[in-house]
């Protein structure tokens, strides 16, 4: 039964910890189960986001465009694990994706398309409240991690990063203005 699989997938996520099964059931009505195979692209960088995913089982690789020895390459910089959410930043900020997501193992995703995601965010029942809290928790954790990374840039005493600090400042200034 897909419905039970979706509820189990939600229950595995720390973002939905402590949420009663009947509330998870309300959320599950808005999701579909999407199987994935290794190497399968899930979302592509620079494309508009059309969905939010939660990993029920398996792992997803995050690839970002980097310069390396004069070439531009998509480099795998992180692996997302079961329970983690992706696609939500792009959808909420209404910006194209900054990364490409590729299945790193066989597994299953819970997919909330744009309409379902919006419905849950607007929902006045317990399912909506739990979902909004889960999304905010995911975003809060993510911003905390991003700030820690930026802080490490700032504190780094190595010449290599030191020489890039002005670039970082300029990049952030540019980002804030957009």
């Amino acid at each position: 039964m897909n419905s039970m699989a979706i509820i189990r997938g939600l229950a595995r996520s720390p973002h939905f910890a402590g949420i009663p099964t009947e509330v998870l059931h309300g959320i599950s009505m808005h999701a579909s189960l999407q199987k994935m195979s290794p190497g399968e692209p899930i979302g592509t960088r620079l494309q508009p986001s059309d969905a939010v995913w939660l990993i029920a089982d398996g792992r997803v690789e995050v690839r970002r465009l980097q310069g390396y020895e004069g070439r531009r390459l998509e480099v795998a910089l992180s692996i997302l694990k079961p329970g983690m959410m992706f696609g939500h930043v792009s959808l909420l900020s209404e910006q194209p994706r900054t990364a490409t997501f590729v299945a790193a193992s066989p597994g299953a995703l819970l997919r909330f398309d744009r309409k379902s995601f919006s419905s849950l965010l607007a929902d006045r029942q317990q399912a909506g409240a739990a979902f909004r809290r889960a999304v905010i928790l995911a975003l809060g954790n993510q911003l905390h991690a991003v700030n820690q990374l930026l802080d490490l840039f700032i504190q780094d005493s190595g010449d290599e990063i030191e020489s890039r600090r002005e670039l970082l400042r300029a990049a952030l200034d540019g980002a804030v203005q957009t």
Binding site: R64, V89, S93, L139, V146, L149, L172, A175, T178
Partner: peptide, 9 residues
């Protein structure tokens, strides 16, 4: 998050 990740990239 989007702005910071874009800058970090």
């Amino acid at each position: 998050i989007h702005d910071s990740v874009h800058a970090i990239d």
